[in-house]
């Protein structure tokens, strides 16, 4: 049952793509996803921190501890 393949596929093709990572606190991080592990720990490049939609900080690289993550969001790839 549980269609894990969809998730594994998503995780295998997400590297190098621009993402929005939302934390449970409501803070958003926008950046390029460098890598991800099974705990949802995330390494982001060119990271921008948004609090209430306002840019608060920029980090070259950032490690985000997975327990704080609500979701990782991507844009659909249109026309390859």
């Amino acid at each position: 049952m549980s269609r894990k393949e969809a998730l594994t596929h998503f995780m295998s093709q997400i590297h190098g793509r621009p993402v929005v990572v939302k934390l449970n606190s409501g803070v958003d991080y926008r950046g390029v996803l460098a890598c991800l592990d099974g705990y949802m720990n995330i390494a982001l490049e060119q990271t921008e921190e948004y609090v209430n939609g306002q840019l608060k900080n920029k980090y070259g690289d950032a490690f985000i501890r997975g327990n704080n993550v609500l979701y990782i969001s991507t844009q659909k790839r249109r026309g390859g």
């Binding site: 998503f10 609500l70 991507t74």
Partner: peptide, 22 residues
């Protein structure tokens, strides 16, 4: 859908990987 002091905030997203923890 998020409840904020200013009212309900709605965000549209293409694709998300949602943490099951919460």
């Amino acid at each position: 859908y998020e409840a904020t002091p200013e009212g309900r905030r709605i965000t549209k997203l293409d694709q998300i990987f949602l943490n099951g923890n919460n």
